[in-house]
Each structure stands twice: as structure tokens, then as C-alpha cells.
């Protein structure tokens, strides 16, 4: 048999993810107050972003929250120049940023960088560079309610 057949198929399953009390509180603060709040472990003091309802390290539930700073430091980044199916249109830059007062870094887009030259963009986004949080005017209570911008583009 020279010509083997293929059969086209799809995987269209829709999900409804429960956000839970921790995520709900976080997203409400984003939307309503334009604030980033983070849970703080009662045992080791870890202030964690993205927020979690328990400390993975100490395995205790958390109910204390703190507000973190509106600026932070890039810990890792990349620039994506190619298109992947169902993923954002290129080019885009994303970075893990340690916000002042947080114990862990959180990912988001960095939007004020010229991405036309990859190498130049990568230099500007270097680890250690300072960024600030910029809130969208119309917020919907999702992680897209804010993004990062370099302090000195």
C-alpha cells in the first residue's frame, strides 16, 4: 500500500474552571481597586504570586493578605517572534517580575518595548531591569487587567 489514509479529527472540549475564594479575592482587588494583593504564609512568610490558598512548602492554609508594590524587577523574560496555533499573535514579550514586597515572581506581558529587532529587545529586557505595573482602564477581573512596562524603555 503506497497511499495510507488519514482521518481528520478535533478535540473541542469546553471547561468551566472554578476560581475559588483565593483567586476571586485577587481578581476582585485587580478589578475594583487596581491593586495587586498576595497571600502570605503564616509560617514561612512567603508572599506568593500567583496567589494560592495554601503554602506549598509548609502545607498550611493561608488567610493573611498583603498588598505588593507597583514596581518590580525582571527575573526572566523571552520574546516570541513566531505564531503558534491559538496562542497570542507575535511578536510579544513576556517576563517574570518580582514585584516589590512579593516573595515569588509573576508572569505578564511587557508592552512598551520595540520588538522589531530581537537582540536589541532582549538587551532592553535584561534580568534585573525595573518595570512598573500598568492597569487597564476597563478591567474585567482577569489577569489581563494589568501588564508590565519597562521603567526606562
Amino acid at each position: 500500500m503506497k497511499e495510507m489514509m488519514t482521518l481528520k479529527g478535533g478535540w473541542n472540549v469546553k471547561y468551566n474552571y472554578a476560581v475559588g475564594p483565593t483567586g476571586t479575592r485577587f481578581f476582585k482587588a485587580l478589578k475594583g481597586e487596581a491593586k495587586i494583593i498576595a497571600p502570605k504564609c503564616p509560617k514561612c512568610g512567603l508572599v506568593m504570586l500567583p496567589p494560592r490558598s495554601f503554602c506549598e512548602r509548609c502545607f498550611v492554609p493561608i488567610d493573611e493578605w498583603v498588598e505588593v508594590g507597583m514596581e518590580g524587577t525582571i527575573q526572566a523574560f523571552t520574546v516570541v517572534p513566531v505564531k503558534f496555533e491559538s496562542l497570542p499573535d507575535p511578536p510579544y514579550a513576556i517576563a517574570y517580575v518580582l514585584l516589590d514586597g512579593a516573595g515569588t515572581a509573576m508572569v505578564n506581558f511587557v508592552k512598551n518595548v520595540d520588538l522589531s529587532d530581537l537582540r536589541k529587545a532582549a538587551k532592553k529586557l535584561a534580568i534585573g531591569k525595573r518595570v512598573r505595573v500598568v492597569f487597564e482602564k476597563k478591567r474585567k477581573g482577569t489577569i489581563h487587567d494589568f501588564h508590565y512596562e519597562l521603567l526606562k524603555p
Binding site: 474552571y17 472554578a18 476560581v19 475559588g20 475564594p21 483565593t22 483567586g23 494560592r52 490558598s53 495554601f54 492554609p61
Partner: peptide, 12 residues
């Protein structure tokens, strides 16, 4: 439907 719990919360 445990809408009040994220999957992680339930497992924890």
C-alpha cells in the same frame, strides 16, 4: 458542583 473551591483547594 464545588464552585466555591478551585481544584487545588479541594485537593489540598
Amino acid at each position: 458542583a464545588k464552585k466555591d473551591q478551585k481544584l487545588d483547594d479541594m485537593v489540598f
